[in-house]
Design a protein around this nucleic acid. Structure first.
Lengths: 256, 256
DNA sequence: CGGCGGCTTGAGGTTGGTCAAGGCATGTGG
DNA sequence: CCACATGCCTTGACCAACCTCAAGCCGCCG
C-alpha cells in the first residue's frame, strides 16, 4: 500500500469513485469501511482499447475495479460466433462474481480506454471476511448480476428481434443513468451494431434493420453513436422492460 | 421451532438432506452450523404437481429449500411465450438469490410432487449474519447461479439448435449426477419436449426433430422420459460443454 | 490521400416457427 | 371393463424470418 502512486486515503476522494458510490447506494459504510476500500483501490492502471483483461480458460489472481470506460464480458463459441454476456461499466468489478472459479469462464476485453484499479484476489477475499457489510453488499451484487443475466436469457431465447433491441436500449440507458453517464433520454452507445448483435443474438445487418424500424416508428433517434429515446413508454411496452431488476439497493431489512 | 412435526436435530438426519450435502461439498461445517441448519429446516411441506410456489410480481417472505422433486423458474412474456431460466433440483433454494428483490422477478412452479422446507426470509438472513461460513457458501452459490445463467445466454443466443440441445442434456445429466439422482449415463428428463423448448428457445416440434437427429447419429437413446447418453465425447464437442462451470466447490483459499 | 472500420442496403436461400393431423399411453368415470 | 378424455410425442407442409454474402458509402485517422 505504501508507495501507491495516487494517495486516496482522504474520504473526500475515495467516495467519489463509482465503485464506492455504488456500494454506498446499497449499504451504509463507516469510516473504517472507507479506509479499507481506500487501501484496496490504491493501484491504478490504464487499459487501452481492445486490451484483453481476462482470457477464457486461464487462471487469474487479480480483479479490476472499473473507474472509467467500458468492457465486454463474452465467450467465443466454436462455431465462430461470439456471445456478449454483459457490458461492464464504471463501478463494476471485472472478474466478479466469476472469481470463485479457478479458471476464467469468460473473456473480458476493453472497448475504448479504461481506468482500472488492480486488486489481488486475496486482498479482496480478506476484505470480505473482515468487513461483513461489504460482503453483504457483494452478495447483493452477485444476485443482481444473476438477475441481469436471467433477463438476457429471456431476451435471446424468446423475444422477437425488435423487442430485444428495445429492451437492450432501455437497459443501457437505465444503467448508464444510474452511474451518471447518460442524459435523461439519450446516451452514447459504446458498442458497434455488430457488437449489439453479439449481445442480443442477431447479425449486424439485422440490428441495422431493426434500428431503422425503431427510428421510422418514431421511438428513437440516433446521431452517430448517440441514441435518443423519443418515446420511452412505447419502448418499454415493446421491449417489456421493467427497470426493477436493475434496482441499486436491496430490500430493507430491519435486522441487517 | 418447538412443535415441529419432524425433529431433525440429530446430525445423522440433517446431514443427509440434499441442501446440507451441497453445503458440505463447498465448505466445512461444524456442529453449531449443523444445529442452526437443523432448526431452519424444521417446517416441512409438500407441493403438488403444477403448484405455483412464487408468482412474478408478488411480494414474498419465505424461501423454500428443496428436499425432493423438481420445479421450473420461468417468466411469461407478453408475446405469449415462456422462457424457463432454470430447472430447480433437490438441494436448491427456491427464491434464492432473487430474494433480495422486494417483488418476485420470476415465477416458480412445481413439476411433479415436491417435498420442501419452508424458511422465513428473516430467519434465513439471521443465519447468514450469524454464520459467516454459511454466508460465504451462499455467495458462492449465487456466483454459480450467475455462471449457469451466462451459459444459458450463450445457448439461447448463439448456438445452433442441435448444439443447444446437446448442451442442455449434458447439463441435466451432470447436475443430476451431482445430487445422486442419475445413473452414470442416463437420467429421467423431468420436462416435456415443449418444456425443453422453453428452456433452450425452440418450438416443441423442433425439439422433437433435434432429438430424432441426435438419436439417428447414435449420440443418445431415449425410452419414454429416460435419456441415455451413448457418446458423451461427441455430445460434449457438439454442445461445447465444459462441466467446470457446474463445479460444486469454490477454489481453495488458504485464509478463508 | 488512402485505408480502415463501421454503417447501409439489397438479393437469395436456409432455418426453424406455425398449424394441423394422427398416434400412443395413461388415467378416469360410467 | 370399456369408453372416452387428456397430454404428449411424432410427422408433414408451408411460409416468414433472419442469416449470409456482397457491394457501396461515409467519416476518421494515420
Amino acid at each position: 500500500m505504501i508507495g501507491a502512486s495516487v494517495p486516496m486515503s482522504a474520504s473526500g476522494v475515495i467516495d467519489r469513485h463509482p465503485f464506492v458510490a455504488k456500494l454506498i447506494q446499497s449499504i451504509q459504510l463507516d469510516e473504517a469501511d472507507l479506509a479499507a476500500l481506500s487501501g484496496l483501490l490504491s493501484h491504478k492502471i490504464v487499459a487501452r482499447k481492445a486490451k484483453d483483461i481476462i482470457v477464457e480458460g486461464y487462471e487469474y489472481k487479480v480483479l479490476h475495479v472499473v473507474e472509467s470506460g467500458y468492457a465486454i464480458r463474452y465467450k467465443l463459441l466454436h462455431n465462430g460466433k461470439r456471445q456478449i454476456m454483459n457490458v461492464i461499466m464504471p463501478g463494476d468489478i471485472i472478474g466478479f462474481p466469476a472469481c470463485f472459479y479457478e479458471h476464467a469462464v469468460f473473456s473480458v476485453t476493453a472497448i475504448g480506454e479504461m481506468n482500472l484499479h488492480r486488486v489481488p484476489l486475496d486482498d479482496f477475499a480478506d476484505l470480505c471476511l473482515a468487513r461483513a457489510r461489504i460482503a453483504t453488499a457483494l452478495l447483493w451484487f452477485a444476485a443482481r448480476e444473476a438477475a441481469i443475466y436471467a433477463e438476457h436469457i429471456a431476451d435471446a431465447g424468446r423475444r422477437a428481434p425488435i423487442e430485444r433491441l428495445a429492451h437492450f436500449i432501455l437497459e443501457m440507458l437505465t444503467r448508464l443513468r444510474a452511474i451518471g453517464a447518460a442524459a435523461e433520454h439519450s446516451f452514447v452507445m459504446p458498442l458497434s451494431q455488430e457488437g449489439i448483435g453479439d449481445v442480443i443474438g442477431l447479425s449486424g445487418p439485422h440490428v441495422n434493420r431493426m434500428l431503422a424500424e425503431l427510428k421510422s416508428e418514431g421511438l428513437i433517434a440516433t446521431n452517430g453513436p448517440e441514441v435518443t429515446v423519443l418515446d420511452r413508454a412505447a419502448l418499454q411496452i415493446l421491449g417489456e422492460f421493467h427497470p426493477s431488476y436493475l434496482a441499486r439497493a436491496p430490500i430493507h431489512r430491519t435486522k441487517a
